[in-house]
Amino acid sequence: MKILVLVKQTFDTEEKIRLQDGQVQEDGVRFVINPYDEYAIEEAIRIKEAGDAEVVVVSVGPSRSEEALRTALAMGADEAILADDSELFGDEYSAAKVLAAIARKDQYDLIIAGNQAVDDGSGQVAVRLAEELGIPHISTLTKLEVNGNEVIGHRDAEGDEEIVKATLPVLVTAQQGLNDPRYPSLIGIRKAGKKPLTHVTLADLGLTAEEIARKSEVVETFLPQPKTAGKILSGDLSQQVSELVTALHSVEKVIG
């Protein structure tokens, strides 16, 4: 079985966002593998360990993303593809087109992705890719079972758990709780340096700038109004609670 895992490198979730000239600043920022994609990588490696599978990780993003792919290789993936040609960058539509061109170069039985990235958070790319490839998808999985050609996904649907069946090839996306991603071992890190990592360009993929051109555009980026600290109540506890409930009822009008 051949598994493709979609990976994005993102800001660590503890990073604050700084803007300069309307652009998010990246200097000094700690980058990580998008946490949802870590679940995807871990799941692919577990399938590989349980049977016979080859795991390819792919990322569309700037060259710094190589670090994320190397980490995935160190976790146990076999091969990496990095689409870091800036001509390949656009919006979610473009990314799906690029990933589809990469996926079509091989025969993947299973594609696993995070259900969204913690930076843009649009949650579109993986599902768009499934649609582009004409294969079914099951999103936000907290459990995945692959038995031969049959896939059973346990899907988190706003708290409800849906048990969904499909047949390979299929694309699935990971929700939190799918597994507990491993840290790369020292030996894994050593091996990762020798595993193949291929850079691909627009020309390599046989695409034109026109066919992957973005369909949406960000016209402005801004920070929210900083929230100011409010009132710390004082007095004995029951007095504080009574004051709070009264304020929520008659001043804020959010209860009662």
Binding site: E92, S122, G123, V125, R128, E131, E158, S216
Partner: peptide, 23 residues
């Protein structure tokens, strides 16, 4: 932007070949 909408919107967007704003 719910369990259904989040999942269905990108399907429709890619099928129509159009852009989408999420959330």
């Amino acid at each position: 932007h719910s369990a259904i909408g989040k999942d269905l919107a990108p399907v429709i967007s890619q099928r129509l070949g159009v852009g989408q704003v999420s959330d």
